[in-house]
Design a protein around this nucleic acid. Sequence first.
DNA 1: CGGTATCCTAGTGGATACTG
DNA 2: CAGTATCCACTAGGATACCG
Lengths: 117, 117
Amino acid sequence: MEERQVELCRVEDALSILVGKWKPIILLHLLHEGTHRFNELKRKLPGITQKMLTKQLRELEAEDIVERTVFPQVPPKVEYSISEYGQTLEPILEAMHEWGTNHTLRKRQIEQNKDEQ
Amino acid sequence: MEERQVELCRVEDALSILVGKWKPIILLHLLHEGTHRFNELKRKLPGITQKMLTKQLRELEAEDIVERTVFPQVPPKVEYSISEYGQTLEPILEAMHEWGTNHTLRKRQIEQNKDEQ
DNA sequence: CGGTATCCTAGTGGATACTG
DNA sequence: CAGTATCCACTAGGATACCG
């Protein structure tokens, strides 16, 4: 029984890594479009500040989800990519993406039904 | 291209519903063990306060994930269960649970390797 | 180019006490 | 039993400015 309790909590591990306003979308970009430079990623995330992008990437790096490669040159060049371990998150991300898409459709339908009445 | 951008963001819908310190574990209890009364659920969530349990349940109810049934009697009786729509979250929850379990194992192995050196 | 540093605000979550 | 009502600490996230 207690074992069950402990088991249930494991969900939070995945959640804690994925939570963050920009983390899921960062991961999807890296998964689907491969390695990015810092500013390249920034351009794909309209509205994000440098500070936030740095912070989210650092946290993902600390969890071994994202790999950071620094090229020692001037001007600086830093590349980010999904780690092998990070790729194991894909099923979760895809499941969330699919659910989210249906969720949006559902909301629209509910809106429409409201309008028709 | 822009369509792609919009698509990517759908992940956040799922995330926003699942995020909350107690939500995933509440949902798993309701999914696996069925309908619960308020205090029954509270007993299964060591450490949660009444306020937090109420808040999380209300938020899940607002999103149509959880159903709340009030029995008009004294003393009060309120039952919570997963809605039909809430059940569609199961694949995500299971994917997160599985990942989290492997994640814990992986961490332990890394710890062991550290100790052995 | 790829960051830090500083300051700020809103919201999340907890402790505690009270209630129909 | 199943909640509210307060008050409070902490953090996430944003705006802005500066740096090697």
